[in-house]
């Protein structure tokens, strides 16, 4: 709100924005919750197959999966009101810094907190599936994050608005028009607060979501650190076998 609009007009604007962002989220969320309900967990012999993969092969597989998910996040971004009006430098800055964070937020939709598994490569996988990556601490932190996000029991509309506000972070380095991003982020956050109120959510939920932002940044920093360490040992694997989009975003 610019302060001049009537409460009714502001509510209508929040509802409208929430509706557009929810629609964009659902159109680009890669998996529907219903289709995942049918999926089973990996059997022990399948888990062992992943564990016996060479480290490079498992890293490559995960880079491919992350890249697939990122393409959906780019589509999500393009459908967020106002995103395509930003200059292209700022669109790229926001996606470079925020696409992995959005994937981590979206992960709570494909995570089963009952048995600590996440949907990966056709079935539900526990942390042990990712052992051959050689980054148990990163995997454990990602699973912990997904579990804590699940405990908030967010509705799709809430996940959609939170994802959009994460993507529209105005404090990213190298933005040309910080103010315009800030305005978009504020609008999205107001719509999120409005939706939380409308859904009769606990008063502290918005603040809880805010604290998730620093956790997301730490996870992404840890991912970059692990990628650098991996690249130092296997530069050719990264150069020749990793998806170009993954390299553009994380290994430039």
């Amino acid at each position: 709100s610019n302060g001049d609009a009537s409460p009714t007009a502001t509510t209508a604007a929040h509802d409208h924005l929430a509706q557009i962002i929810s629609k964009s989220h659902l159109e680009t969320c890669q998996y529907l919750r219903e289709e995942l309900q049918e999926m089973s967990c990996f059997l022990q012999e399948e888990v062992e197959k992943f564990q016996n993969k060479p480290q490079e092969a498992m890293w490559q597989l995960c880079a491919v999966k992350i890249t697939d998910a990122i393409q959906y996040v780019v589509e999500f971004a393009k459908r967020i009101d106002g995103f395509m009006n930003l200059c292209q430098n700022d669109q790229i800055v926001l996606l470079k810094a925020g696409s992995l964070e959005v994937i981590l937020v979206r992960m709570c939709r494909v995570f089963d907190p009952q048995n600590n598994t996440v949907y990966f490569d056709g079935k539900f996988a526990g942390p042990d599936v990712f052992k051959s990556l050689g980054c148990d601490d990163l995997i454990a932190s990602v699973f912990d994050f997904a579990k804590s996000m699940c405990s908030l029991h967010l509705e799709e509309e809430e996940i959609a608005l939170f994802s959009a506000s994460v993507l529209l972070s105005a404090d990213r380095s190298w933005l040309r028009d910080k103010l315009q991003v800030e305005r978009l982020q504020q609008k999205t956050e107001s719509a999120l607060q409005h939706v939380l109120q409308k859904n009769h959510r606990d008063d502290g939920l918005f603040e809880k979501l805010r604290t998730k932002v620093s956790a997301l940044r730490s996870l992404c920093a840890l991912h970059s650190q692990k990628l650098s360490a991996f690249r130092a040992v296997y530069p050719d694997t990264v150069r020749t076998l990793f998806p170009p989009l993954y390299k553009e975003l994380f290994a430039a």
Partner: peptide, 20 residues
């Protein structure tokens, strides 16, 4: 632009996720 060629392309394209 050259450094972010693919991201640039994805932003320009009118592809839907189903086409990816």
């Amino acid at each position: 632009k050259e450094k972010h060629k693919i991201l640039h392309q994805l932003l320009q394209n009118s592809t839907s996720p189903g086409d990816l």
